[in-house]
Design a protein around this nucleic acid. Structure first.
Lengths: 275, 275
DNA sequence: TGAATAGTGTCTGTGAGACAATATTAT
DNA sequence: ATAATATTGTCTCACAGACACTATTCA
């Protein structure tokens, strides 16, 4: 039998918050960037890679495995604030592109207790980072190989190299939507392989119909560099003229040039907001 | 000073889960559908509306206001399972299109305590519903009016009629992404106006590049009806030939016909998965 | 017969894909 | 001179927007 209250104030004064189940929540962040590796041939451009920042766990659970930077959400901060706090801790940067991705909450995703993970995607321009990373953190280049049924992501930080494989199964009641399950993974903690794959998929999609790519770029860039960023994320080559046509309205030419090697120098452009 | 553990088992046996902050979580569901209202003129088609199911709160907090169907997530169920449980309670239906929308977690979004809301969008075909709704629930037709800075949604269930107004402000560091803040709302509880607007926006977007619309349709439908569904959700009229071209590959003609009023009968179609 | 919806034909402009051609640099 | 990238020109084809036209029903 429930007591009758006359006002919200009266109700709240009486409220016993302990009668409902409670759980812990973490904010986990996919910090994506594009890295370039030097080429042997002085004429050639640097190779670019789509990369993600992972942290080596130095404590249980999943000790010695890699995981996404993350941390418990405090009672006096939102998940986004927690994400920003962690982002600053890992990269020393504020004002970074950040967007909520998905909330993962399988019952046994953490062996300790019920912990849900509110995941975020951050995009950073690696040029803004000093090389000094937070302890145990490392950039992994990703090579993505996707077909109808599976997504394979190879992760390589120069020292360790391993694959994660995710199985896609069509959800009933709909098309175009998949349920992801981990098929192979022995180096990444928790359900973070799912987070990685979801994040890649989100960024791939948004790349085509938004301007998020510019968050991965420095202030001045060449159209070739920009195109390479699109290419490594989309995982396919684009035709120069088509790319330039599409991108034309989003950039403005500057009077600077980049002299790069044994080939024609290129103009530097800057991001221009539309309208 | 942290104790050294030799194995994960040992660590877990010792683990004290009380040392981290805990909070409650609810699953809140936007149940969308398309309703049709009868026309006076026997020749005309029924008017269609994009509609959402709201529940009148009969207890504090926000007593007597409308809110989304929802409930606390139990420790032994995922948020999706909770959403399905609530969906079945409200509509008596299983196997409904359901997708996670966003996790809202402003610190003071609930006056009782820290409660985060993991929101879901469900799409139902109203024809599958018996009219007997769960207690206090009611379908509200939505009329959406959006410009660069604001989104106004008029809600009407035949008895009550009111507006919510949401202000859009561009997030820094990006284009195309907005922060939503409630500018006007006096009939809807919690931050649910934000949830409603986010859900509308998600469905509008997905309508154009996925097949979700068919989740709002009965098994057999006319192309005119399907077009109307697109029109009421997108909030604009479409040209018949263009619509039929686009949709052609997703439907198959059946030998049934719908005889409707003082005009030419139309063929009934069925959803056909692509390839 | 007329009002209403159902369904089709076709012109036009835009824009992506494809490929060729030209420009410029360091060694 | 050559290998490499930078940049532009242009043809074609697919397709969306626009609008006109025909078909069919019931009161």
């Amino acid at each position: 039998m429930e007591k009758e209250y006359k006002s919200e104030e009266e109700f709240l004064k009486d409220y016993d918050s302990s009668k409902f189940d409670k759980l812990s929540a973490t904010a986990d962040i996919l910090i994506f960037s594009v890295s370039s590796s030097k080429q042997e041939n002085y004429r050639k451009l640097n190779n670019k890679h789509f990369s993600v920042l992972l942290v080596k766990r130095n404590r249980y659970p999943f000790k010695d495995m890699w995981c996404l930077p993350g941390g418990f959400i405090k009672l006096d901060e939102t998940s986004e604030e927690a994400a920003k706090r962690i982002l600053e801790r890992e990269t020393n940067l504020k004002h970074i592109y950040l967007e909520q991705l998905y909330t993962f909450d399988d019952i046994n995703r953490d062996p300790r207790m019920r912990i849900i993970s509110i995941s975020y995607v951050a995009l950073v321009d690696k040029n803004r980072l000093d090389d000094a990373l937070y302890e145990n953190a490392s950039w992994f280049n990703m090579t993505i190989d996707e077909n109808e049924n599976k997504i394979k992501v190879n992760l390589d930080n120069g020292e360790e190299n391993f694959d994660i494989v995710i199985k896609k199964t069509l959800k009933e009641m709909t098309t175009d939507r998949y349920k992801y399950t981990i098929e192979k993974n022995d180096r990444i903690a928790f359900d973070h392989p799912l987070t990685i794959v979801s994040g890649i998929s989100r960024i791939k999609n948004k790349l085509e119909y938004t301007d998020i790519a510019f968050n991965l770029m420095p202030e001045y860039f060449t159209l070739g560099e920009l195109q390479q960023v699109y290419e490594v994320i989309l995982g396919k080559e684009l035709l120069d003229p088509a790319f330039r046509r599409i991108i034309a309205s989003k950039v403005e030419k500057t009077d600077k040039k980049r002299v790069d090697g044994g080939h024609r120098p290129s103009n530097l452009y800057r991001y221009k907001r539309n309208k």
